[in-house]
Design a protein around this nucleic acid. Structure first.
Lengths: 192, 192
DNA sequence: TCCGGATATGAACAGTGTTCAGTCTAGCGT
DNA sequence: ACGCTAGACTGAACACTGTTCATATCCGGA
């Protein structure tokens, strides 16, 4: 065996290497040849595991989505109790986690939600982060914490606002400090 | 003169051609060489007018921002009167224009707000679209149409939500029909 | 009329993603 | 234990890409 990737480890190795490259220089600057070279493998070896360069990048994008999802899971685990206060903390915490991901994984965020990865549709069950955010919203509603008569359509608003704030942070259109302000304003706007 | 661009028209011609290419295939697929060829010009001619390929694309991105701004200006011109109803119409109309731009100029939107163009900062006065949206918000406030005590921080929320909804539409994460629902929900949420 | 500065050229360089004919080898069926 | 096949990998090639630079061309002002 030694340095021969004959036993199926190449696919994972390439994703890892590509992930590192994306983190460091952004998806546009990533070179398939460079990745192959870093792994001491011929460039064409990649095509046994990925149809495309974009196919490889999509795999990296999936890692990004998983990383975001894990951050949000950690937030939920930190506020388990079924109380109004915990429900509030979950909602704010999820939003903060989303924005924090955008701030310190800028390039990965851009790839994950960029043109290459094309998040399919909301159905069948939507992406993990989306579901978690909506569940937190349901919790707030269940405790009667939402301003009355605002529930319908709120999914879309909250999702759009959170995701939009993240992209504004990523684009540098807004400074990182604005993230906290945003979360507080949002909570103030929809709850009472 | 004939087909010789010797008299300074090359820069504009290249931007036009690049704009068309971006509209048709997206910024990633645009080739500087192809643009030059379409204009019967050597590839290196571009470097008398633009430092980079990215420099050219930035010029195209600026066109995109201008196009969005013009759509929004048209909306304002259609609802001039200084009445509460007109203020409401202006706010909703601006939002709708923003989303409409995202829907039928997908590729241009992606370039304009993508990594290449890097919207500088909000200051000195921010981009046109941002300013118009905030002015519409001020108008609503002036007429006392906003829910009491929600004004501070609302700029960020509305901006993020609108821009975020636009990117969700662009990414295909949400169907075009959702745009109307979004605008109505937003109006319902912040006004009474 | 001549000159100078902007403008366009053509060839070259270094790099890219992708294809394909051929090589190697790990592991299954007999 | 053997041969064989299916999968993994290579190396060279193709058709591109953005970018540079020495060279040639043209236009307007002195």
């Amino acid at each position: 065996m030694s340095r021969s990737y004959h036993h199926g480890a190449l696919a994972e190795a390439m994703v890892d290497q590509a992930l590192a490259s994306v983190r460091g220089q952004g998806a546009d600057q990533v070179s398939l040849r460079a990745i192959a070279q870093a792994l001491d493998v011929s460039p064409s070896a990649a095509y046994n595991h990925f149809a495309d360069k974009d196919d490889l990048l999509r795999a990296v994008g999936a890692c990004g989505l998983a990383a975001l999802d894990e951050r949000m899971s950690r937030v939920l685990a930190a506020h388990l109790p079924d109380t109004p206060d915990a429900a509030r903390a979950r909602f704010s915490g999820l939003g903060r986690a989303y924005l924090a991901f955008a701030i310190d994984e800028t390039h990965l965020f851009q790839l994950t939600f960029g043109p290459i990865c094309e998040v399919k549709e909301i159905p069948p069950e939507g992406t993990g982060p989306y579901l978690k955010l909506m569940a937190a919203l349901d919790d707030l509603d269940r405790w009667g914490l939402l301003k009355s008569g605002t529930r319908d359509g709120l999914d879309l608003i909250v999702w759009a606002a959170t995701h939009g704030m993240a992209t504004l942070l990523v684009e540098g259109a807004v400074p990182p400090e604005a993230a906290g302000v945003f979360i507080d304003s949002m909570a103030r706007l929809i709850t009472d």
